[in-house]
Design a protein around this nucleic acid. Structure first.
Lengths: 147, 147
DNA sequence: CAAGCACTTTACGTTAACGTAAACCTCGTC
DNA sequence: GACGAGGTTTACGTTAACGTAAAGTGCTTG
């Protein structure tokens, strides 16, 4: 219904080893179900830095991973600023000075704490949900009996 | 350094069974580390409905629980609108019609899916963090040796 | 009784994270 | 050569979730 044939760039690269693939903004957008606008915005916010081929943005594997991590961070409620802080420090690691590295460890510990609290929150909310679910089914059952 | 004595309302109720306690907006705000403004905002959004005593808002145990659940939901990335949908349906449960109840079950299943994905996200992000942490410590170690 | 604290309403301001629109290139293809 | 599908920049708009400020009410305490 969509692509009759046409060996697109997208398809033609499918067999390549991931490391050497590159992506257009549209491809990435479809992969992660976001809009190109979002991806450009992340670049503007310093989270991505694709190469250019003429005017067009070319994303490499590294960029794809960064986008993936960014979106995961978002789903967990981190702000773009927080995410940027980590990823940029990560990139600056090899030649980073000790102070920066300690700061990074600090941030990481912080994130970890955050995750632990989220785990607890999830556990609790699961219980609540199960409870509400149970009650709702009870009421439905009684409705069925009286009807 | 703060309260020399003064048996405040707050303190005087400390021994009461939870079910009969009531709270001012300021108390709740301190308990959950939010501002009164936030609590009023949640009321405006239909998440809370405290009784009034004259002009002042009086929160009962039920309100406190709702606030707690609301904040937990927020930490997990749910919007106030989503949270409201669940809690209002929960309250309407006893006399709710079947259609509403099915809708509720639907929503709950949805939330559960959401939580499951978050669990996976947390798992993955933990691994990433551990990895970065490890690398950072490695670099620090090497710095120590060369210094 | 003045001061101070906690509460109230009203209303405008702010920030993050994009959405949306306009106006423009640049291909391949019919 | 028109055109449609993708890409680009620039710029203003929008929404959620509050912050903040102003101006007033009511208690209780020195």
């Amino acid at each position: 219904m969509t692509q009759p044939s046409a060996p697109t760039n997208e398809a033609s690269q499918e067999a390549l080893p991931r490391q050497h693939r590159h992506y257009t903004i549209g491809e990435l957008a479809r992969m992660f179900e976001v809009t190109p606008r979002t991806i450009r915005f992340y670049e503007q916010e310093g989270l991505l830095a694709p190469r250019r081929e003429g005017q067009k943005r070319i994303y490499r594997e590294k960029d794809r991973v960064r986008l993936k991590l960014t979106l995961r961070g978002k789903r967990l409620g981190f702000s773009l600023a927080e995410i940027r802080e980590v990823v940029t420090m990560y990139d600056a690691m090899p030649d980073g000075n000790a102070r920066q590295l300690w700061r990074l460890l600090e941030i990481l510990a912080d994130k970890r704490d955050n995750l632990e609290r989220q785990l607890e929150d999830i556990r609790l909310m699961r219980m609540e949900i199960d409870d509400v679910d149970h009650r709702a089914r009870e009421v439905l059952r009684s409705l069925g009996h009286e009807a």
